[in-house]
Amino acid sequence: MRKKTKGRIAFQIINYSILALLAALCLFPILNILAMSFSSATAVSAGKVSVFPVEFTASAYSYVMGKKEFWTSLIKSLERVLIGVPLSMVITIMTAYPLSKDNSQLRARSVYAWVFFFTMLFSGGLIPGYLLIQNLHMMDTIWALILPTTISVYNIVLMLNFFRNIPKELEEAALIDGANQFQTCFLIYVPCAKPSIATLTLFSFVTQWNSYFDGLIFSNFPSSYPLASYLYTVVVKRDLSTLSLDDFKLLTMVDDR
């Protein structure tokens, strides 16, 4: 059986310490900022906060909660996620299913696959993308945010690989029982791929929730910003034109830098 040599034990100890250190490195900044958010401004600027809050206060949170823009942008973000994620998942599944077939079942498969893969390497970039949204009259609508990000080719590739791992016999049995391709896809394949669909839903949620840049450029008015874009304006323009004098005073209470 496996014998534990001295070198092996030493390696294990070092290995565990390195991994624990890495985990701490990833967790620490997040804990630090969380502690700061619950600490008073004086404690933060004195640099006394590490992982636990000092002079506990929730004034930062009540400041944010009191802002009307926060709530409108939160609703915008929720709307985006609630429409965008299901739409994106349905289209991803419907695209990945035919692409997971052999060339013998779908002759044009490679052509389709290249059409999708090509967009992974090349894109039109910022200005043509902006002009397109403008020409489609989608500025300031939720669709400007949802539709361009509906398809992630990366997710499609993952999905079709999951579909390929499902035994072919299931599909053949379904077809013999008289199911058409749509039924095979949504009644046989989708239930079989539930775990991977859950993973991809999470990815898609994170993308939709976190993207801020499209919100910034596809909106003419700050009122149509999703949460991430609003957050960007808050973080970047801490005390520029968007803030009134009262706001500024409030802000110094929260953070006196």
Binding site: T95, V115, F116, S123, G124, P128, L147, T150, I151
Partner: peptide
Amino acid sequence: MLLPGLAIILIFSYVPM
């Protein structure tokens, strides 16, 4: 089944290209 995905990618990726 490929049609909706293809439509989106043509409009939002290939037209900007």
